[in-house]
Amino acid sequence: MNIFAKAVVLVAGATAATVLLGAPASADNGDNQPGCQNTEICFWYDTYSTIEKQFWNTNWSHSNYKFMINGSSYVVSNQNLHDNAHDITNKDTQCWVSVGNIDQYGNWVWQHYANDWSRRFLGALANKNDAHVRDHNPNCS
């Protein structure tokens, strides 16, 4: 889905957004505040900064999560995180992050992101994100 199409879908669904469940009961939602803070792993819905999903930890299944809307607070949108992310920011203080997608043969396809705090395009994994893993260090998992 292109960026324009994503924006239209988002506006159309905004009314219903706040009544949807954002994540499973034991959800990882970062600091649950707008913006991408020190230590968080943040996925962005498009090239803007209004739609975001934050994590503290590794997550092997993005399918249970919704993107959040950044505003004066951080509320659930109607957009799935799974196969729907455009950018990532890795603000983990100690770990790199790998973003993964399972291809049609069952292989994990990985892209790596050092903890350089830069916002980076997911490239070939844009809209193909199944999971992310904190890695590259024994302290990370």
């Binding site: 203080t93 100690q94 069952g106 990985w110």
Partner: peptide, 25 residues
């Protein structure tokens, strides 16, 4: 804090193309 948390050698940088067939197999 960073020093005291323990800084240990990492491994596996750029290992995402270590290809050996699907994990499930």
């Amino acid at each position: 804090q960073l020093r005291d948390a323990g800084i240990t050698p990492g491994s596996g940088a750029f290992s995402g193309l270590n290809l050996n067939g699907p994990e499930f197999a």
